[in-house]
Design a binder for these strands. Structure first.
Lengths: 200, 200
DNA sequence: AAATCAATTCGATACTAATCGAATTGATTT
DNA sequence: AAATCAATTCGATTAGTATCGAATTGATTT
């Protein structure tokens, strides 16, 4: 029954509560256990409709039913709401939702637009976001923890574009590289940066 | 902007998160602020679609946008998720959702089916839920904190049905009244009972 | 001033989900 | 055994919404 990943479970939970009548059902069951007919009368709906809503809530593990003669009496599952609320608040939940997402897609799209087949730049884009995507790609040509003299920096940058001076300046300005006394080195990605360059 | 009652706000919140792509947007924004185009590339959607999703999330007060040149950079509203999670957990939230619901509707429906125009019972229903609804109606004819001798109890019950013995027995059995040494008195509603009899 | 760019709005389309009535199922009462 | 009852399932209809492409808007760059 719980063959769902945590994010699928969370989505199921939100979908279950994203309906006015289902929310009311939860509110009513919080006060007392009720049968399908009772809920139908209170909500002004047909029993078949209420049965459907209760099925959705069951699949989201929010309610359960017990048989009493020919009644099906539904109960709020104790701790179900609390559990999901805590899941929402948990630090690891949000990142895990985005886990399956291709966060490099934008950079790839920009590079696809701006790169020639040989890997050189058609142009150095003027738009900030595009420029940043290009710079993230270029800086991957430098190794971490290595000190580069300016001559070597220019040789590497020249593989991408003849205007090495602009590229140097932008790499520094966007804090992807640092310079001191004519020596350059790569800076580690800040929190707001993307995953590692996928090297397309 | 917040001309919504608490329950409408809660529903808006759940609706906003009841979509896989919007959940992913929240997950991505939890890691870093992003523009519409970046989100569109990551999710494999058109900018217009993402714009629509961001509008929904904005109306639910989950994200906000800041203009940066011609980019619209979206941010997770700090504390928004936490706030809603706490609202979910709050003791008073659940009952307030069901506040507008007519909890007497089932009893009224049963009474409408089983009562004659003069207020007498066509039959004493066999089904437990229906019987309970009828008993809740009948017990309202007795005052709280008054001690009734059996003779007077029978007179009152006879207004509803000739089989006063059965009615007496069921009222006791369902703990709506109690008896001791031939004296009867009404019991206060337990947690699982309905609101006061609407006296139709 | 013209061209470019990202975002939004709008209209159309496809998909999903809510609701109902009819038929069916399981259980209980007569 | 037959009749009654509540719940569920099923099929059809309707309402809502996700998605897209085209057009528009505001801002920036050339």
């Amino acid at each position: 029954m719980t063959d769902l990943t945590p994010d699928e479970q969370l989505l199921e939970f939100f979908k279950a509560l994203a309906d006015a009548n289902r929310l009311k059902i939860i509110g009513l069951l919080a006060q007392s256990d009720l049968s399908v007919e009772e809920l139908a009368a209170m909500l002004g709906l047909r029993p078949s409709t209420v049965s459907h809503h209760l099925m959705v809530l069951s699949l989201a593990n929010l309610v359960s039913a017990r048989a009493e003669s020919y009644y099906n009496v539904y109960t709020l599952k104790p701790g179900a709401l609390e559990g999901m609320a805590k899941t929402m608040l948990a630090q690891e939940t949000l990142p895990s939702i985005a886990a399956g997402v291709d966060t490099n897609a934008y950079d790839r799209k920009v590079l696809h637009d701006v790169l020639l087949p040989d890997g050189r730049l058609k142009i150095i884009p003027a738009q900030r976001k595009k420029l940043e995507a290009v710079l993230r790609h270029i800086v991957a040509a430098f190794e971490m923890d290595v000190r580069y003299p300016e001559k070597q920096v220019n040789e590497i940058l020249a593989q991408f574009h003849e205007d090495t001076a602009t590229l140097r300046r932008e790499l520094i300005g966007h804090k992807l590289m640092a310079r001191e006394a004519g020596i350059y080195w790569r800076l580690s990605d800040s929190a707001n940066s993307r995953a590692a360059d996928s090297g397309g």
